[in-house]
Write a protein that binds this DNA or RNA. Structure first.
Length: 631
RNA sequence: GCCAACGUAGCUCAGCCGGCAGAGCAGCCGCUUCGUAAGCGGCGGGUCGCGAGUUCAAUUCUCGCCGUUGGCUCCA
């Protein structure tokens, strides 16, 4: 069962993205000391701004209950329990008041207090009292996570505002720039991140050292919007959603269809060479299979409800693995044939909650670059790293550099609930993965409590244009399901052994992969992936015949080319092709017709006049064949 | 699912306090035959997301639903 659900969370200050991003090419990056965000000036600025904002809010709503307000990437937030919903006008008023407070040059004064003193100070602030309890009794931090040692209880005071806080802060508000802070939006957020708790109002803000930095950041946000796959997907006619079809159910237009075909072609080529067998399994099956696998009733919430025929319930599959297990188990297996690698671009359906949908990145219907590898323990490391090598091959091909490989581990508390209750096997397989990664020299970070329920995994985390984090690809070890399905092979010694299963999806799902690639390339796809590779632009209609001949010739050479026979002027046609980010434009007029040539314009604006048709065709074919990123 | 904002022509958007809707681009039809990012003119196109309610009158106000977006939760 591959989960590409990913984490749709903006990374917070406790896990700064920048520090943990790995680049394969810089595998030994440890010699570069990175300033910890928590110790940086920006952190102090943002933390201090949060206090100033809280003061402004409390002044506006004397009955406000304030909770926590940490710095995050690019800014900070603060959560409040307020008597009414905040409006955009409120934000303006708060921002205005913040500027006044900042201008007051109030000092931030730290004081260490006893729990009793703290309780007295915050006697009207129930959330603060809860935090104080946590600090005192349970040694919990503000998120409710255990701390290693019992911390001091400290308060920070500036102007007329006091907050429970461990700091650090700037010395006084004069060190903050009133024109470098901007309140961004209001969002709901559960107290302590628990959906059973009260929903608070969170104000997000961004804060910088100075105005140019703020402006640069806002500019970046604008740029990010331009490469947002939802916008480009519409503009480039790749996919769309339709109300009548349903949320999270993308419709692929011809351009998207081409990209899907290209990705599948790539996967097949690579997997054929790597010894995978392609299988095909149905999109739905009887309830029995998912009862057997253990996904029902536990996973039912994420599955479309069953349909019943002749008294039998059928489910649309949310994952392919149980069916692949059936194929592995369809006959006795020998150790000689291991590893068995079964691959399928399987179509799955998952009922993601409505609020969790996000363009192509989080959908309800998906096609996974799925495969299940059944292997012995001896062959595990080699096989697992073979999969990691596949990732690297793909990521090199796409030039994907910003990502993190994350070893997702079990959490002790979850054993028997979230995770298969066998700590020995957990630790064993986690060690197997860890040492495989280390032996392979692949950088990775570790994260507790992120594993699949049947085993640890390596997730590849990427970020969307607007900064949301997702699991793009995943490589999971499964020490539980093969036994559930009584899968076995006969060992050299003649004994029956249970194989390990590796679930992997290096090319993610078509949906998430293409969503990601749209943003990664900002729509300017490499030639092999570009829906339209060549646009032929005749200068006058006297050149239409030649343009059509070129079109035919190129298509027969396996190039996606089309001639633009519209009545617009050449300049307009070029503009249209540029907007569609078509890699090559061939302008043809009298000179080209006379010489059996083309005037090549690439989408980067470069030009090469008088190129013989044969030369151009050979160039495109070479780019396609090698999947080059060059034009 | 939860909190909030938004939903006007294919697209991007305008439409102050209620008086039966407008632009640019795209499309179609002409004219133009042009050398590397928008030639000119004309025409067509909207149950103002859907359903109720208030009102003499609702795109505009209220409620419900659907969808999208920003977050939260979830991601087994």
């Amino acid at each position: 069962m591959l989960d590409l659900g990913g984490t749709a969370k903006k990374s917070d200050a406790l896990a700064p993205v920048v520090e943990s991003v790995c680049h394969f090419k810089e595998a030994s990056m440890s010699d570069q000391p990175v300033e910890r965000y928590e110790e940086s000036e920006l952190y102090r600025i943002r933390h201090s701004c949060a206090h100033v904002m809280a003061q402004a809010v409390v002044e506006m709503f004397p009955e406000a209950k304030y909770t926590i307000g940490p710095p995050i990437e690019n800014g900070f937030y603060y959560d409040f329990d307020l008597p009414r919903t905040l409006t955009p006008e409120d934000l303006q008023a708060i921002e205005k008041r913040m500027r006044q407070i900042i201008a007051g040059k109030h000092a931030f004064i730290k004081k260490v207090v006893s729990a009793e003193e703290a309780r007295l100070i915050f006697k009207d602030q129930p959330y603060k009292l809860e935090l104080i309890d946590g600090l005192e009794k349970g040694s919990l931090d503000e998120y409710g996570n255990p701390l290693e040692s019992k911390p001091d209880i400290s308060i920070y005071q500036h102007d007329k505002f006091t907050d429970l806080c461990r700091g650090p802060h700037v010395e006084h508000t004069g060190q903050l720039r009133p024109d470098a802070v901007k309140l961004m939006n209001v969002a709901g957020a559960y107290w302590r991140g628990d959906e059973h708790n009260k929903m608070l109002q969170r104000i997000y803000a961004t804060a910088w050292k100075n105005k140019p930095d703020l402006e640069r950041y806002l500019q970046q946000l604008e740029e990010a919007k331009k490469r947002d796959h939802r916008k480009l997907g519409k503009d480039l006619e790749i996919f769309f959603f339709d109300d009548e079809v349903g949320p999270g159910l993308p419709l692929w237009q011809p351009n998207g269809g081409i990209m899907i075909e290209e990705l599948e072609r790539l996967a097949k080529e690579v997997e054929d060479k790597a010894g995978y067998f392609r299988v095909r399994t149905p999109n739905l099956c009887k309830e029995d299979l998912f009862l057997h696998s253990g996904h029902l009733p536990y996973y039912a919430e994420s599955m479309y409800p069953p349909m019943e025929m002749e008294g039998v319930k059928y489910y649309v599959k949310p994952m392919n693995c149980p069916m692949h297990h059936k194929i592995f188990g369809s006959r006795p297996r020998s150790y000689r044939e291991l590893p068995v690698r079964l691959a399928e671009y399987g179509t799955c359906y998952r009922y993601e909650k409505s609020g969790e949908l996000f363009g192509l990145m989080r959908v309800r219907s998906m096609q996974m670059n799925d495969a299940h590898i059944y292997t012995s323990e001896e062959l595990f490391e080699q096989e697992f790293m073979g999969v990691v090598a596949l990732y690297r091959q793909y990521f090199d091909l796409f030039g994907i550099e910003k990502f993190v490989m994350r070893l997702s581990l079990h959490g002790k508390e979850g054993l028997g609930k979230k995770y298969i209750d066998n700590e020995r096997l957990w630790i064993k397989t986690e060690d197997m993965v860890r040492s495989a990664m280390k032996n392979g020299g692949v950088p990775f970070v570790e994260a507790a409590n992120e594993a699949a329920f049947y085993g640890p995994k390596i997730d590849v985390q990427i970020w969307s244009a607007i900064g949301r984090e997702f699991t793009l690809a995943t490589n999971q070890v499964d020490f539980a399901q093969p036994a559930r399905f009584n899968l076995s092979y006969v060992s050299k010694e003649g004994s029956e052994e249970t194989p390990l299963c590796i679930h992997r999806a290096p090319l993610s799902t078509h949906e998430r992969m293409i969503g990601f690639l749209i943003e990664h390339y900002a729509g300017s796809f490499p030639v092999w992936l570009a829906p339209e590779q060549v646009r032929i632009i005749p200068i006058t209609d006297g050149h239409h015949e030649y343009a059509l001949r070129l079109e035919k010739q190129l298509r027969q050479a396996g190039v996606r080319a089309s001639a633009d026979l519209g009545a617009e002027r050449m300049n307009a046609k070029i503009r249209q092709a540029q907007l569609m980010k078509t890699p090559y434009m061939l302008v043809v007029g009298d000179q080209e017709v006379a010489n059996e040539a083309v005037s090549l314009r690439c989408r980067d604006g470069s030009r090469q006049d008088g190129m013989p048709v044969g030369e151009f065709a050979a160039r495109v074919q070479e780019r396609i064949k090698s999947r080059s990123s060059q034009l």
